[in-house]
Design a protein around this nucleic acid. Structure first.
Length: 107
DNA sequence: TCCGTGACGCGAT
DNA sequence: CATCGCGCCACGG
């Protein structure tokens, strides 16, 4: 299970973000949002900053939250107030085989 | 086995 | 918006 979740997380490209719930579904584990959070908390080498709560909200507290925001802005993710502008930055997981989703956004 | 715990999600107020 | 409540789920005590 951990592997499936990690794989899904790794599919999120730089400059894009996703949510715990979406990652869980992409991993074939609908409803396992909390497990996604755990994997992120313990796993290493994962682009953890690209996973947010529903609506593009950062769910971390204190310094971690600040770091996540800085990391995201550093890779071009735009914020609208305290949330990420999902309308523009959310990564849509495609169904296997050549996933054709909106990609390459770096003007 | 029961119970508390979360980097959760969503609808209702 | 802010809060609340309830559903969800793997884990550890």
């Amino acid at each position: 299970m951990r592997i499936r979740i990690e794989a899904a997380i790794r599919r999120i490209p730089q400059g894009k973000v996703s949510t715990y719930g979406a990652v869980a579904r992409a991993a074939g584990l609908p409803g396992a949002a909390r497990q996604v959070a755990k994997v992120l908390h313990r796993g290493f080498g994962l682009p953890w900053q690209r996973v947010l709560g529903a609506g593009g909200e950062i769910k971390l507290r204190g310094d971690s939250a600040i770091e996540q925001r800085l990391r995201l802005e550093a890779e071009g993710v735009r914020f609208r107030g305290l949330k990420v502008d999902m309308k523009q930055c959310e990564w849509k997981f495609g169904r296997r085989t050549s996933d054709t989703g909106p990609r390459n956004l770096r003007p």
